[in-house]
Computed example of a mutant assay.
Amino acid sequence: MRNLKQMSRNRRALIQKLQTFQQDTGLPLTLAHFVEHHGMTLYELYGGRTGKRYFRGMLAEAGLTAPIECEQEEYIRRLPSVLTINSRSWLTFLIDFIEKGQDATTADERRMLTMFYYTFHRAAPEKLGLSSIEEGVQRVLSCEAFRAELVDIFQYNLAHLRFVDKSNSFPYTCPLDIHCMYSIDQVLAAFGYWNAEQSPTFREGVKYFADEQTDIFFITLNKSDKDFSPSTLYEDYAINERLFHWQTQSRVSEHTATAQRYIHHRETGNRIVLFVREYKDEHGYTSPFVFLGEADYVSSEGNKPMSFVWRLREEMPAKMVAVANK
């Protein structure tokens, strides 16, 4: 039998499998039944960032459903950022919003809607000729087939969660759940930095939100020379499930305001928040970050860059400790 992972990259082979699925299995042809029967992941089905495919589009191509007249290629290309959503609260909200027409009534829900908007759009509404976040969201959902596919993905992800997430304890609106995965775009939207008015350029691995008194760090554990310059190949790793070693940017020395803010964050009421991933790319997609929650200062040494040890308030997931430990 052909290797299923090779098959997953072959659109024609997938379509042939779709055409014979019900005859071969006696099961209704659904997204969940198809990937589970063939032992595939959603990543394999959707084919990486170059796949440009989705389940209902392939059903139509296989002649199993009517042609889809409203295919939205720009949004299909963004599906990889949807496949990794694994926050129970966000998944539940999105399913209810799309399937049941539930309004975004709370501050958290409105922020979740903005996160969804920036999952598919790369600029603030006005720059795209849109009047609001809501109009941008409805544009994503305007194609019935695509809308139904999103619900299928969210329901599949919700049904296959195998970990316990936890709400954060921030004293401001930020609907991120600890140990869940998020893209940088989604995180910036969750903190309100990307919003209905703006989506400022962000290329750094760190960001300080002055109003929230919060520093966030985006950390990639296994860096490659082609993705990172020599000045950004920092030594970042887990010491154990609670302690994390992290290096600053090369311009930070002990006497800078940034370093002092890090060192004295508890006295000044500032928060340190970590987002960590193993690789920049996995499964043919840009990897999301795992939200590890808040951390407290333990020690620091060196200059330009400085090395910090942080103590996580929540234990790192065992799976991540294994890949983050040096």
Rank of each mutant, 00 (worst) to 15 (best):
P125R: 06
V276P: 01
G136D: 09
E99P: 00
L158H: 00
A190I: 07
S89W: 00
E294H: 05
F146H: 04
L79N: 02
D211I: 04
S132C: 12
V140P: 04
T50G: 09
N270W: 13
H37V: 12
E144D: 15
E241Y: 07
R88N: 03
F170C: 03
V309M: 01
T106W: 11
D296V: 01
R12T: 06
E301D: 14
H121G: 01
D96S: 15
I15R: 10
I98A: 11
V290G: 00
D177W: 06
V151A: 04
V187K: 04
A210H: 07
F21I: 04
N3S: 14
V206T: 11
V252I: 15
Q260C: 06
A159N: 07
M40C: 00
M181Q: 15
P200Y: 02
K100F: 10
M40F: 04
L4Y: 05
N86R: 02
S183C: 05
E126Q: 13
F218T: 05
C174M: 13
V137K: 05
H160Y: 07
R313N: 14
I153A: 06
F120W: 04
A62L: 05
P230E: 10
R261M: 11
T268C: 01
G129C: 00
R147T: 03
W90Y: 09
H37Y: 15
E44W: 01
E126P: 00
E235N: 14
R271G: 08
L94S: 10
A210K: 13
L176D: 04
K280E: 07
A104L: 11
Q155N: 07
T114M: 06
Y117T: 09
K226N: 11
S224A: 14
E73M: 12
Q260T: 06
S169Q: 12
S8I: 03
Y46R: 04
R2F: 13
F146Y: 11
Y54Q: 06
Y208L: 15
N325H: 14
R147C: 08
S87G: 00
K17S: 14
Y297I: 03
R111I: 11
A123H: 13
L233R: 15
E294D: 08
T41E: 11
E134Y: 12
G51A: 13
R88P: 03
D177I: 00
D215H: 13
T50K: 14
R271E: 08
A148Q: 14
R251Y: 13
M7I: 14
P200K: 05
R49G: 05
F120Y: 11
S307W: 02
K17R: 14
V276R: 03
S199R: 15
V164S: 07
C143T: 09
K280Q: 10
D177Y: 08
R88S: 05
D108P: 01
I184A: 14
L130Q: 12
P230C: 10
L27M: 12
A148R: 15
R53W: 10
L18A: 08
I216A: 06
G129D: 01
K304D: 08
L158W: 00
Y54P: 01
F97R: 09
